[in-house]
């Protein structure tokens, strides 16, 4: 399990970095799918198989397919790719890079103050669904309202 975790973590990292530096939209999408799938593997390694399934089905499946459809509709050609390359100037990365490095340093400095190991005991579908349809029922309803609103908004926005 521990091997699975670290391997998947490295894959996720590399794939994510590839997403943000790639110039081709479709390539970037595929890297993103890889990243999401490896995160799904990490979930599995952490003992959350239900979350891993949802990550694979909803994120890597549904959402990314949606992205892909839009990319095909837009049909961005070689011109866009050249443009992307022109925008990739090192000096643009200096400011954001510094800020973000600072943020990361802060986060890790907080995290390394404790040292607790995780023993991956599986948290099953049953536990989650008991919570979902028990105390979190209202949140589920709200989430469904959010999805409905997203549906209506997307339909309206994408209309000609």
């Amino acid at each position: 399990m521990i091997f699975l975790f670290y391997t998947a973590a490295i894959v996720a990292l590399i794939a994510t970095i590839a997403v943000i530096v790639s110039t081709n939209v479709v390539h970037a999408l595929v890297y993103l799918i890889i990243s999401l799938l490896s995160v799904a593997v990490i979930f599995f390694a952490l003992g959350a198989p239900f979350a891993a399934m949802l990550e694979a089905i909803v994120y890597a499946g549904a959402i990314m397919v949606l992205f892909l459809f839009v990319m095909m509709m837009l049909n961005l050609g070689q011109a866009t790719q050249d443009e992307e390359k022109a925008w990739m100037q090192p000096r643009l990365w200096i400011g954001p890079g510094t800020l973000v490095a600072l943020l990361l340093a802060q986060l890790t400095s907080v995290l390394f103050t404790q040292d607790v190991a995780i023993s991956p005991v599986e948290v099953g579908v049953l536990d989650i669904s008991v919570l979902l349809f028990g105390p979190w029922l209202l949140a589920v309803e709200l989430a469904s309202m959010l999805l409905l609103a997203g549906l209506v908004a997307a339909y309206h926005l994408a209309k000609k």
Partner: peptide, 16 residues
């Protein structure tokens, strides 16, 4: 977005 992140860094920095 950059202003937002800069603010975030400052606030977290104050906390940490």
């Amino acid at each position: 977005a950059i202003s937002l992140v800069a603010g975030l860094v400052i606030v977290i920095g104050l906390g940490v």
